[in-house]
């Protein structure tokens, strides 16, 4: 296995220059705000993701945490991909990312849906690191559910 397939330039860029890092209070009054704190008990990585929404659009997805390059870059990509999206749209991106990470490297990602997230295709071949990449996405899912927007697959299907 080649290390470059794991540490794509895009991932290292997001790690060294994270987008939208830091937990923010919403600008708009009346927005629903909720957050979730997730930890990876095996390595001690942690991330807090905060979602601000009016129930239709995700006005902000902010985050803070400490962890490895994969988890931190993944949070940066999450922010970039989901801010300003409609909840349903965000769910489709979330589902595509989870599918990519669960695919053991056999899933071809759609750049139109996942943007910089396609760089994580190589991570899916490293089972020990999949959890790192998914950590902010799982925290986002919980935060969004707490903010009243159903982005988890089960809630959307229901």
């Amino acid at each position: 296995m080649q290390l470059e397939s794991l540490y794509q330039e895009i991932i290292l860029d997001h790690y060294k220059h994270p987008h939208g890092r830091g937990l923010r209070d919403p600008d708009a009054t009346g927005a629903r705000v909720a957050e979730a704190h997730h930890v990876n008990p095996t390595c001690g990585d942690e991330v807090t993701v905060r979602v601000a929404t009016d129930g239709e659009v995700l006005h902000d997805v902010s985050y803070d945490g400490m962890g490895c390059s994969i988890s931190q870059a993944s949070a940066s990509v999450l922010h970039e991909l989901l801010v300003g999206r409609g909840a349903g749209d965000a769910f489709r991106v979330h589902e595509a990312f989870v599918e990519l990470m669960s695919g053991r490297g056999q899933v071809t990602p759609d750049e139109d849906v996942l943007g910089d997230g396609v760089a994580f295709a190589g991570v899916a071949r490293y089972p020990a690191r999949v959890k790192c990449a998914l950590l902010p996405w799982m925290a986002f899912k919980d935060a969004a559910a707490r903010a009243g927007v159903g982005v988890s697959p089960t809630e959307v299907e229901a």
Partner: peptide, 9 residues
């Protein structure tokens, strides 16, 4: 540098 990244390289 996070230990996970150190260990991976």
């Amino acid at each position: 540098i996070h230990p996970h990244d150190v260990g991976q390289v």
